[in-house]
Design a binder for these strands. Structure first.
Lengths: 100, 100
DNA sequence: CAAACATATCTATAATTACCGATATATAAA
DNA sequence: TTTATATATCGGTAATTATAGATATGTTTG
């Protein structure tokens, strides 16, 4: 991992709500209600659930998640009108290897 | 580690110079000239060497290092008029355990 | 003690980020 | 094909951070 990407990841992890989102996504079934159309969390959690739980505006949370996805911390999967986000454990591990 | 401290660490790691400093301090003997009064890097590297290498003002780098020490990323040791800084591997590991 | 040196802190301005409401886009449902 | 729903993006203001120069503090040395 290069220093530029590591810094972008650091920026994502410099805000308590975004750090909290990373923590919530460790255990979706514990932290979120079940999805209505999907019977699992295989692709993570939909944006609106995360937004609701974060208690910030839709636009703010959407921007957070977009940036977290751009730097690789999260993986985005779209099904119809829903977007699901899950942790990208591979990139997280690369980041850990970089800073350790 | 609680989310507040993790966020402070994230802030420190959200700037390329500060990330770079963390990297340099992994291998002081490789990245810095030998100290004049001290014959080792056991307590890390003095502020002025880090400042010189970073290429930013003395006050800016001093503030960086101070914040990095406050959140636990670095350990500060003073000998007379010199301050030495080294990585705090214990806290770094705690941070890694938190985000993983 | 005075001068020199290393580092920290203060003050100020420029740049960036936080956050929202409004609006756009894209899909699904009626 | 309108309407509703989910998410993204735009435009703006408030808050925070970046960074520097000036100054203060503490230490060593002459």
């Amino acid at each position: 991992m290069d220093i530029k990407i590591a810094t972008e990841i650091g920026k994502c992890l410099s805000n308590p709500t975004r750090v909290q989102i990373m923590e919530w996504l460790k255990e979706p079934e514990k932290n979120f209600p079940p999805h209505e159309t999907l019977q699992h969390f295989n692709d993570g959690v939909c944006v609106s659930y995360i937004q609701e739980k974060a208690g910030l505006s839709q636009s703010t949370v959407s921007t957070y998640l977009s940036n977290m996805e751009k730097c690789g911390l999260l993986v985005l999967t779209r099904y119809g009108k829903w977007s699901y986000l899950k942790r990208n454990e591979k990139i997280i591990q690369e980041y850990i290897d970089f800073i350790r």
